[in-house]
Simulated assay, not measured.
Amino acid sequence: MRLLILGTGARANAHAIKFGKIAGVKIVGAVDVDLVRAKAFAAKYNIEHTFASLEEAITWGQFDAAANVTSDRSHYPTTLALIAAGKHVLCEKPLAENYEQGQEMATAAERAGLVAMVNFSYRDEAALQKAHDMVLSGEIGNVRHLDGSFLQSWLVYAEWKNDPKWLWRLSTKHGSNGVLGDLGIHVLDCAAFAAGSPIERVFARLKAFEKAHDNRIGEYELDANDSLAMTVELENSAMG
């Protein structure tokens, strides 16, 4: 399989390393609006071709699938473009910014007969797999209540204020959906997977605490939510 990596920011390194270990997979191209960054990434992982836009890569066309590692807001248009070009897609989470966009992406892939997946990396965790199996086997009875949290500490370290790889996560202008899109989506997926039931309803309170003067650092307006609390109800009536 010939693979294109779309987006060469920090997260793309994990994709290059993991895909590089799979027999039969060859990373043939890298795309980034910052061509200097794309070329540095390509040199690091011995990738032959680089492009400054997805349109250029699609016109070239010599790839079978793509790992979409762009910012949250870019997932929807870029994944649809890849599907329209007949390419399989592994998309980073969150798949889209709303249900309608996500459904459109899924429908497009199904109609095209292509493989389209979301990269929920915690699905491979042994504890989560075990919980899923125990629930489905009936070993622990009916699930009624769920409790989960995802805490990160990088905001307590000063380095984030000078590093775009962190700053973009706090700015909706730069394509971020905040902690809801970055971590909250993992909590929701883990809950649904462990309980063996899709989520039916979600209620969330989002907060963007002040982190700098006027919540701005250079070109970055720090308006994306950095904290959230939510309650959910699953289709099997469990809640948490």
Rank of each mutant, 00 (worst) to 15 (best):
N215Q: 09
W166F: 15
T172Q: 13
A195S: 15
K207Y: 10
D214M: 04
M117R: 05
L155D: 01
R123P: 00
L155M: 09
V202H: 09
K207E: 14
E125H: 12
A112S: 11
L188Q: 08
A224L: 07
H213P: 03
F150P: 03
D182V: 05
D147Y: 11
K130N: 12
K165Y: 13
R205L: 11
W168V: 10
V115M: 09
D133L: 15
W154P: 13
Y157N: 15
R144C: 12
A204Q: 10
W160N: 02
F203M: 09
F120C: 01
P198V: 01
A112L: 08
L155E: 02
L180W: 06
L136H: 13
N225V: 12
K161L: 04
Q129W: 00
Q103R: 14
Q129H: 06
R216G: 01
M105K: 03
D147P: 01
E221Q: 15
V135T: 14
L222V: 03
M117D: 08
A224D: 01
R201G: 00
S153I: 07
C190L: 05
N225K: 01
N142S: 10
G113S: 12
G181D: 10
L136P: 03
A204L: 04
G178M: 00
G181S: 08
G184M: 04
W154G: 04
K173D: 14
Q152V: 13
V202Q: 07
N119G: 06
L167T: 05
D226F: 00
A194S: 13
R169H: 10
V135F: 15
G218Q: 13
G178Q: 00
M117G: 02
K161M: 07
L136D: 07
A194N: 12
V179G: 01
L146T: 09
R216W: 02
E200Y: 09
Q129M: 13
G196T: 03
V115E: 11
H186Q: 14
M105T: 11
I140Q: 07
A131D: 13
R144I: 09
A126I: 01
D182G: 03
Y157D: 12
T107D: 15
A158F: 06
L170P: 02
V115F: 14
E219S: 15
E219F: 12
F150R: 15
G175Y: 07
A112V: 03
S171D: 15
K161V: 04
E210V: 05
A192S: 14
H213C: 06
H186K: 03
D182A: 09
E200W: 09
D189L: 01
G184E: 02
